[in-house]
């Protein structure tokens, strides 16, 4: 554990808490892509199956349980409790266009051809593109609530901080996981346009609106 990894995890945690708070306080999930949230639930469910096969640390297990449970709660809130506020008309990204190619790639490019390892790889690849339905939705509506922008900034920062963590681990521990690093870089790059808008607009007190 290094400082980048720790801040990255905390940023990830903050993102999820922000999203849940937004939904709970406003009793609404307007502006949030349910499809991205389904993908995140799938990401956690397929990645953390090792909860049952390996114990790494109390921190590790607690965080995994937190991510799995909160992602399920988020999906529940969106599709059941606050379903009336869900903006399905703008959430039209086709999930099969992500899940099918990512599944195929996980079969072809992995560290070890075993069920758990393929599911872990699937999860890493899927996470890297899971935000696309959300970004697609924002590009259709042309805007995002400020709290949603904070959520996305925290969520995007998490993987960017993991990249610094991997640089650190490469130099000081000789650790290098090509699959995680490439997918993490792809994931971070997808957020760059949003990061730019966040810094130039939201941090200056303006609402995030996309150029027409």
């Amino acid at each position: 554990m290094n400082i980048f990894r720790l801040i990255g995890d905390m940023s990830h945690l903050l993102a999820i808490v922000l999203l849940l708070l937004k939904m709970w306080k406003t009793r609404s999930c307007a502006g949030i892509s349910g499809k991205s949230q389904i993908l995140f639930a799938l990401v956690f469910a397929t990645r953390y199956l090792d909860l049952f096969t390996a114990f790494i640390s109390a921190y590790n297990s607690t965080m995994k349980l937190f991510f799995i449970s909160t992602s399920l709660v988020t999906v529940y809130l969106m599709y059941f409790k606050f379903r009336a506020t869900y903006d399905a008309n703008h959430d039209t990204f086709r999930l099969e266009f992500l899940v099918v190619p990512v599944g195929g790639l996980a079969f072809l490019v992995n560290h070890n051809f075993s069920p758990l390892e393929i599911l872990w790889t699937f999860s890493i690849y899927l996470e890297s593109v899971a935000i696309l339905p959300q970004l697609f939705m924002m590009s259709k509506t042309g805007e995002a609530e400020t709290i949603t922008s904070h959520y996305l900034f925290a969520l995007g920062s998490y993987r960017a901080l993991y990249i610094l963590n991997w640089v650190f681990r490469y130099y000081f521990e000789g650790f290098f996981d090509l699959i995680a690093v490439v997918a993490g870089c792809v994931q971070t790059i997808l957020y760059c346009d949003f990061f730019y808008l966040y810094i130039t607009k939201v941090l200056k007190g303006k609402k995030l609106s996309l150029p027409a």
């Binding site: 995890d9 390996a54 790494i56 640390s57 590790n60 560290h111 963590n165 650790f175 995680a180």
Partner: peptide
Amino acid sequence: DETSAGKDEL
């Protein structure tokens, strides 16, 4: 094992 090197990460 070797393939689980990254699994301490979340």
